[in-house]
């Protein structure tokens, strides 16, 4: 059995690599995009607010799987063609940015107006107030919710299976179908557990860091 595990491990590991690249690119794009959208959602400019609301509603109200299929199989019909991996990144980043935006918006609204006024009478500039007072408090507010989404993303990344990307799940499924054994799928489960476990630990450290000031 160890022999078999060693034999399929390279294929699984290259699947892990695909999964991790998708995970990291999605976070790298969706987090800043989510912050921007959340600022837009609290903006006083009505058309901007309304269109961003519609975007968030659409992204959260339809399945990610549908969005993925739409981007990769649907858009080519109207001549918008993405590479497989680009289609995955586009669909994931747009979807997750909407969830992040809602979380950041809540975090932003939870900072009392009095904090901003307090900074204002102390002569802090707008950008100093945002950097030193607002952002630390928003981050503290949102870490648990963002953490949940990050862990969901590890698992959701397996949806790219449907557009034929060779991620971790596909690597395991291919081996199981070929060799008629459960071992690859069990290994896949173990690797997902490891990845989500690492994320959980990292998030716990971050929460601990912020717990210093309650």
């Amino acid at each position: 059995m160890w022999h078999y595990i060693l034999a399929i491990l390279p294929a699984l590991l290259s699947g892990v690599q695909v999964t991790l690249v998708l995970f990291l690119t999605t976070l790298l794009l969706a987090l800043p995009l989510g912050i921007l959208v959340s600022l837009g959602l609290t903006s006083r400019f009505r058309p901007l607010r309304a269109s961003l609301k519609a975007y968030v509603w659409l992204m959260r109200g339809t399945p990610l799987l549908l969005q993925l299929i739409f981007v990769f199989y649907g858009l080519p019909i109207i001549n918008i063609v993405f590479q497989r991996s680009d289609a995955a990144v586009v669909a994931f980043a747009l979807n997750y940015a909407a969830y992040f935006a809602e979380i950041f918006r809540g975090g932003l609204q939870a900072v009392p107006q009095g904090q901003i006024e307090s900074a204002q009478v102390l002569q802090l500039s707008y950008s100093q107030t945002i950097r030193k007072i607002v952002i630390p408090q928003v981050l503290k507010n949102v870490i648990p919710a963002i953490g949940n989404e990050v862990i969901n993303l590890v698992k959701d990344s397996s949806l790219v299976y449907v557009i034929g990307i060779g991620d971790l799940l596909r690597a395991g499924n291919v081996a199981t179908a070929r060799d008629v054994t459960l071992i690859p799928l069990v290994l896949v489960a173990a690797i997902y557990l490891l990845l989500t476990g690492i994320c959980t630990l990292g998030l716990r450290q971050l929460e601990k860091h912020y717990r210093a000031w309650h």
Partner: peptide, 11 residues
């Protein structure tokens, strides 16, 4: 200004 609820910066 000393605000009624102080508004110290919690962070």
């Amino acid at each position: 200004v000393v605000f009624q609820d102080f508004q110290l910066f919690p962070n």
